[in-house]
């Protein structure tokens, strides 16, 4: 931190010296320009006539959507069950697959740093980079529309997420405990079962519940691309402009999200 002194010898506190300060200002200027340019492009691509009309349209939609069509709930029970299954089974399968990937990716447990670890990291990054909706889009094309495609999409998307958090947890373990188990003459697998697994169990439980919570949210929209669950009804209602049904579905989704958050908070509290 540069501290310059003025003529009277008083120290003048400055965060940066002159050149850095200039650089910072230039950075801000550049950033602002980039932002303004982006905004300009978005603005150019927008039909502003519709935007000025938006309050009226929003009010109109609100008018039509309320009150929700409560009777419709009876045709939603099955989609809700499907949604729950997509999220839960997807999370379970993802965890089963994420564990080996995490062990292969962690620096301290990978069998080979130069070949296997990069492959594991590649699996993680590909799985994480692509949204579950896109995976669903692809899987609907491959295995056909339905709950199965949705579950696979959730599984594939969650592998990377879980494996990343898990391998970070593995890299942070206390190595002396592993050393102690090694010193007893334990085999490689025993070292894993006694020295490593107990240490990462809390992280594993936390990650599972955290991801399950996220997956409940994500599985509610998978139906939009035909991958089963309540999103299918949402899509149908939107297409037929049945706004009272849309509002009911949105309420159900909101409710489901609140419940899943509550459950995951409870479970996390119980485990850790």
């Amino acid at each position: 931190m540069p501290i310059s002194s003025d003529k009277s010898g008083l120290k003048v506190w400055q965060r940066r010296d002159r050149n850095t300060q200039l650089l910072v200002w230039a950075g801000w200027l550049l950033g602002t320009m980039v932002f303004l340019y982006c905004w300009r492009q978005i603005s150019d691509a927008t039909e502003w006539f519709f935007v000025w009309d938006a309050p009226r349209i929003a009010a109109d939609i609100g008018d039509r959507a309320l009150p929700p069509r409560w009777a419709y709930i009876n045709s939603l029970w099955e989609p809700i069950w499907d949604t729950l299954n997509i999220a839960t089974l997807g999370t379970l399968f993802a965890l089963v697959l994420a564990v080996p990937v995490a062990f292969l990716a962690a620096r301290n447990t990978t069998p080979n740093r130069y070949i296997i670890r990069p492959i594991a990291l590649l699996i993680i990054v590909s799985s994480r980079s692509i949204n579950s909706l896109i995976w669903a889009l692809l899987l609907v094309a491959v295995v056909g529309p339905g709950v199965f495609a949705g579950m696979l999409a959730i599984t594939i998307r969650s592998i990377g997420f879980c494996a990343k958090l898990l391998y970070e947890a593995i890299e942070e373990i206390d190595q002396s405990q592993v050393e102690a188990i090694t010193a007893t003459g334990a085999s490689r697998w025993q070292i894993m079962a006694y020295g490593i697994v107990p240490q990462i169990m809390p992280a594993f439980a936390g990650i599972s519940v955290f991801r399950w919570d996220i997956n409940i949210r994500e599985s509610t929209v998978l139906g939009l691309v035909g991958a089963g669950g309540i999103g299918l009804q949402l899509q149908g209602s939107l297409n037929t402009l049945a706004w009272p049904q849309v509002s009911l579905i949105l309420l159900v989704i909101l409710f489901a999200v609140l419940i899943s958050e509550w459950v995951s908070a409870k479970v996390r509290g119980a485990i850790i």
């Binding site: 978005i42 927008t46 519709f50 349209i57 929209v221 939107l238 909101l254």
Partner: peptide, 24 residues
């Protein structure tokens, strides 16, 4: 946090019309 991005986007597209503004 409770509303999924996609659902928000659907509503905003319905209100503001197609295009990047709704996404933004």
């Amino acid at each position: 946090r409770a509303l999924n991005e996609i659902i928000v986007a659907i509503l905003l597209v319905a209100i503001f019309g197609f295009g990047p503004l709704a996404g933004f």
